[in-house]
Design a protein around this nucleic acid. Sequence first.
DNA 1: GCCAACGTTGGC
DNA 2: GCCAACGTTGGC
Length: 146
Amino acid sequence: MKSEPDVFSIWDLMAKGTSGWDGVRNFQARNFLRAMRKGDRAFFYHSNADPPCIVGEVEIVKEAYPDPTQFDPKSHYYDDSSNPKDPRWSQVDVRFVREFPRPLTLQEIKGIKPLREMVLVTRGRLSVQPVASAEWNLIVGICGRR
DNA sequence: GCCAACGTTGGC
DNA sequence: GCCAACGTTGGC
């Protein structure tokens, strides 16, 4: 799950404990949000950061429900074409699990052969995306220790 | 700040 | 249903 740290960083989540993951306005990303199940883990990725990197781990604590910002005209994420009877956009709630002792930069990921096929690399613009279990285990193995 | 990649919109 | 125009993402 990607977020720009200037907007919402893993340290913001650490301070809050849990947070709604709102503002997703891409259908594919939304569909991946809807596929998430309570207890699932996800990486927290800092996009548009210097350097862009995987910084930690979160847990899904509430499955997809309508993202309220789509109905808030004052919100940056307001979508006047979304029908309240059939909301277009969803969010999940996530809980901070940990910040990795060693973040993994996109540049490093591209240099690790088994990670080159990650959606992160091949479909760079997708902000919520699946991670294969082999990829997950490899990354946790690298990031989990300093 | 630039720009490649690519998703979305809307005319036809 | 196609595709041009346009907007956004996100790395660099």
